[in-house]
Simulated scan of single mutants.
Amino acid sequence: MEDSKVRARASAPGKVILFGEHFVVRGKPAIVSALSLRAHVSVLRDRSLNGCIRILSREYGGFTFCREEDAKASTHLAPYYQLARSLGIEGDCEVRIESEIPPGSGLGSSASTSVALTAAALKARGLELCGRELIEKAMLGERAFHGKPSGIDVVAAVEGGFVLFYSLDRYHKLTSRVGIDDVVFLIVDTGVPRRTRDAVLGVLERYERHPGLFKKVYDAAEELVMEAVSCLKRGDYVCLGELMLANHGLLSSIGVSFLEAEKVVHTARMHGALGGKITGAGMGGSVVLIVEASKEERVRREVLKEVPGARVFRALPESRGVSVD
C-alpha cells in the first residue's frame, strides 16, 4: 500500500435517551433514539509511523502509540488505541476521528466513535460484523472509558432508529411514524458539569431507604415507557412530549434534577416546546426538548436568554445506524 492510504471508513450516530434512565438500572425499560449527529472514523496505512499507531481527534488532538506503556500518557485517546489493538490493528496505521457529537454532552460520543472505529478496523482487515456481534466488539472501547456501562449507547449507535432497551441481551428496534420534517430534538447542554456517579449512587441509596415508595415510581416509569412505545408507533409526537414531561417529573422525584434543567424545561414549554426532560444521569448535564420545526428558533432563543451559559444543539431522529463506506 502507498503511504497514508485509506483502508476503511465508517460512521455511527450519537444518541439521546428519551425515557427510562436510572430506572433501567433495576430492570425497567428505556427508550433511546439515534441522532443525526455522527462520529466518522478512518483507518489509514502510513508506513512512516515505523510500527506505531497514531490516533488523531479533532477534539483531543493526536497521540502516537508505540508501546503499550504509551496508553498511560493519553487519557482520552488511549481507549481507542486499546480498542484498535484488540481488533487486530497493528503498527503503521493512523486512526482519524471526526465527530459531530459534542464530547461530554451525554449524547454518546465515545460509544459512537467506538462503534465506527470497530466497523472501520474490521473492514480494514477484510472482515464485517453486524448486530450483536459488532456490539460485543465495540463494548470493549466503552468499558475502557466507563467501566461498567449499560450498553445502551452502543446499541443505539449500531442499530439506529428508536430502540426499546432492557439490557445488552434484551432490546429491540421500534417502528415509528414520527416524521423528521415534523419535529426536531434540541439538546441543551446546561453548562453544569455532569455528576454521573453521585447521581446514580444517590438514587440507589434513596431507593434502599424508601423501597416501597420508590418501587411505585419505578413501576410508573415502566408504564410510561410502554405508553411511549404506543405513541411512537402512532407517530403521535404530541403524546411523546407529554410523556417526556412526565418522565422529567419522575426524575425530579428521585432527586436528580437541578435548577438549570428546571429553567430549560419550563421556559421551553412556555414558548411552544411539546416536551422536555433531563437526559442522562442528571445533577448536571443536558436536557432534551422535542419541538415542532416551526417553533425551533423561538424556543432556542428563549432558552438561551434564561440560561445564558447553555449550548443548544439541533438533531433529528436518525434511522441509520453504523455505516461502512
Rank of each mutant, 00 (worst) to 15 (best):
173 K>I: 02
246 A>T: 15
246 A>N: 09
231 C>V: 12
263 K>A: 12
220 A>G: 11
190 T>Q: 08
227 E>Y: 10
202 G>I: 08
284 G>R: 02
185 F>M: 05
264 V>C: 06
227 E>W: 09
168 L>W: 01
189 D>Y: 07
195 R>C: 01
273 A>Y: 02
213 L>V: 15
232 L>Q: 06
201 L>P: 00
175 T>S: 15
270 M>P: 00
172 H>E: 14
192 V>K: 07
167 S>K: 06
264 V>N: 07
266 H>F: 13
240 L>R: 01
244 M>Y: 11
257 S>L: 07
199 A>N: 08
278 I>Y: 00
230 S>K: 14
176 S>E: 00
258 F>D: 10
190 T>R: 11
215 K>Q: 15
241 G>D: 04
233 K>A: 15
219 D>N: 14
235 G>D: 04
183 V>H: 07
211 P>K: 06
214 F>R: 00
196 T>P: 07
208 E>N: 07
216 K>P: 00
171 Y>I: 03
246 A>Q: 14
250 L>H: 06
227 E>K: 13
214 F>A: 08
176 S>H: 04
194 R>M: 14
173 K>T: 08
220 A>F: 09
280 G>M: 10
266 H>P: 02
244 M>D: 01
190 T>A: 09
276 G>W: 06
192 V>H: 04
219 D>I: 06
281 A>H: 02
229 V>G: 10
284 G>T: 05
280 G>D: 12
230 S>G: 13
194 R>A: 15
173 K>S: 14
190 T>Y: 02
282 G>L: 05
236 D>S: 09
210 H>Q: 08
239 C>V: 08
213 L>E: 15
273 A>T: 12
257 S>N: 09
276 G>R: 05
248 H>L: 03
242 E>P: 03
249 G>N: 06
281 A>C: 04
180 I>A: 10
223 E>D: 14
205 E>V: 12
241 G>N: 04
214 F>L: 13
218 Y>S: 07
242 E>R: 14
261 A>W: 02
216 K>H: 14
181 D>A: 09
208 E>M: 11
202 G>T: 05
181 D>V: 03
181 D>C: 08
274 L>V: 11
